[in-house]
C-alpha cells in the first residue's frame, strides 16, 4: 500500500511539475505538431492521402518518445540541479521507487503529444479519426506509456554517470524514431536494424497502437511490449543499484 501510494504521489507530482516547464510543453505539444504538419505534407505530396491518419498518428508516437527521452533521460540531472538527489537516495524507500514514477510521468506526458497531433490533424487538415478497434487502441496506448516509462528508467539510470545527459538525449531522439518504425516502415530499413527494433518496447507498442487505430491484430504487440517492460524493469533495477553504489563510493552524486 505504501509503495503504491509513493508511486502514485511521485508520478502525479512529477506530471504537474513537468507541465509547468516550457521545454516540456515544447517537446510534448509544439514539436509533435511541427512533425505532424511535416508528415501531413510529405504524405500528401507523395500522393498517399489514405495514409494521412498514419502520418498524424506517427507524429504523436514520435512525441511520446521525445517526452520520455527528455523527461526520463534528464530526471537524475534535474534532481542534481535542484539539490534533491542526495536526500532522495538517502531516504528509506529504494531509489527505484522514486525514479520509476518520474520516468513514468515523463512518458505519460507523451499522451499530450498523441492527443494534440490527432486533434491537429482533424482540425487543421480534416483527417477523419476513425479507429478500427478503439478499446484496443486505448489499451495499447496505456501499455506503450508504461513500457516507455520502464525504458526511461533504464535510460535515466544509465545517464547517472553521464553528466551531459541532455546532449545524449538530443542524439537519441531521431535514431529511435527510425529504428522503432515510428514513421518509417521497418521493411525499408537494413536487415540488421530489425534485430535492434525487436528489442525495443516502443516498436511493439507502436505496432499495437497502429493496429488498434488502422486495423490489424493489436494483441501480439501489446504482449511483447509488456514482456519487454518486465525485462527492462529488471535491467533498470540492476543498473541503478550498481551505478548508485559507484556514485556513493566516489562521492559524485551531487556533482554536476
Amino acid at each position: 500500500m505504501h509503495v503504491a501510494r509513493l508511486i502514485a504521489i511521485t508520478w502525479w507530482f512529477q506530471l504537474k511539475q513537468s507541465t509547468k516547464a516550457g521545454i516540456f510543453v515544447f517537446t510534448a505539444i509544439i514539436e509533435p505538431l511541427i512533425f505532424a504538419t511535416l508528415a501531413y505534407y510529405l504524405f500528401k505530396a507523395g500522393k498517399q492521402p489514405g495514409t494521412l491518419l498514419y502520418a498524424a498518428l506517427s507524429a504523436g508516437l514520435m512525441g511520446i518518445w521525445s517526452a520520455t527521452l527528455f523527461g526520463a533521460g534528464g530526471a537524475i540531472n534535474y534532481q542534481r540541479w535542484q539539490g534533491v538527489l542526495e536526500p532522495l537516495i538517502a531516504a528509506p524507500p529504494p531509489y527505484l521507487l522514486v525514479l520509476f514514477p518520474q520516468t513514468l510521468a515523463a512518458s505519460t506526458i507523451g499522451v499530450y503529444s498523441l492527443t494534440s497531433t490527432l486533434l491537429w490533424g482533424r482540425a487543421v487538415f480534416g483527417i477523419p479519426l476513425h479507429f478500427v478497434h478503439p478499446v484496443a487502441f486505448l489499451l495499447a496506448v496505456a501499455v506503450t506509456i508504461v513500457a516507455l516509462g520502464v525504458l526511461g528508467l533504464v535510460l535515466g539510470s544509465s545517464f547517472i554517470l553521464y553528466r551531459e545527459a541532455n546532449a545524449l538525449s538530443n542524439m537519441l531522439e531521431f535514431p529511435v524514431w527510425i529504428v522503432t518504425g515510428a514513421i518509417v516502415p521497418l521493411s525499408l530499413l537494413p536487415g540488421w536494424v530489425h534485430y535492434l527494433s525487436w528489442g525495443l518496447a516502443p516498436t511493439w507498442g507502436y505496432r499495437a497502437i497502429r493496429a488498434g487505430a488502422l486495423g490489424g491484430n493489436p494483441w501480439p504487440g501489446i504482449g511483447w511490449a509488456l514482456a519487454l517492460a518486465a525485462v527492462y524493469l529488471l535491467i533498470g533495477e540492476a543498473i541503478l543499484r550498481v551505478f548508485e553504489r559507484r556514485a556513493r563510493e566516489k562521492a559524485t552524486l551531487s556533482l554536476v
Binding site: L42, A45, Q48, F174, W177, I183, V184, L188, L189
Partner: peptide
C-alpha cells in the same frame, strides 16, 4: 529519417 520518409512517400 527524412530520407527514409522520402523513400516511403
Amino acid at each position: 529519417l527524412f530520407a527514409y520518409i522520402g523513400r516511403t512517400t
